[in-house]
Amino acid sequence: MTKKINFRFLPLVVFVLLLGFLLKGLFSDPSERDSALIGKSFPQFELPDLNSNNKMHTPETLLTEPVLVNVWGTWCTTCKYELPFLTKLANEYDVKIVGLYYDQNHAPEFGEYADIPTIRVEVKEMLARLGNPYQYNILDLDRSLSLDLGVTGAPESFLIDANGIVRMHHMGDVNERIWREKLAPVWNEISQ
């Protein structure tokens, strides 16, 4: 008799568990996942400056102190919205921000080449209009460093500590709330 009572509520228990599981799925963001690079060193690279083909950037020049690496492009709409806030971060909070310019069109394998002078003009125009948070921009024309960083698009941001270890990754724009809740705690820790 007692066994019968246990089994009677089993479908209900299973149903409630399933409901909870599905309800959780309803509010979870499938694009929200941890970067595979957290805790690892920043990948090796040697890429030119956006404004000069002769000036090269390497981990040795980039990772001398804690830095926020921001992946962006003039083609990216969301990037336009974060530029003013990033500028505020650079000016008021002394955050060292370096841009990694992500170009979408360059694909030599398929015979498509980006026009660098045009990119320079567009970048200059946009930064003059919305604010320039960048100490400098690295031009990742073939997106090789972006691939090594596991970048899927723009904007994305990485916090790297003084030892060159990737500490935090954020997909999407950096705004007041994201900075306060997600990035600032890590930044305060690594910039002390």
Binding site: P30, S31, Q104, A107, E109, F110, R143, S146, L147, G150, V151, T152, G153
Partner: peptide
Amino acid sequence: CPKCQNQNIADSNAVVAKDMRVK
């Protein structure tokens, strides 16, 4: 494809999927 939710990289036209195919 890490950008698009349920496509393999052969199926997707996202820039990152192209890059992964090339790689």
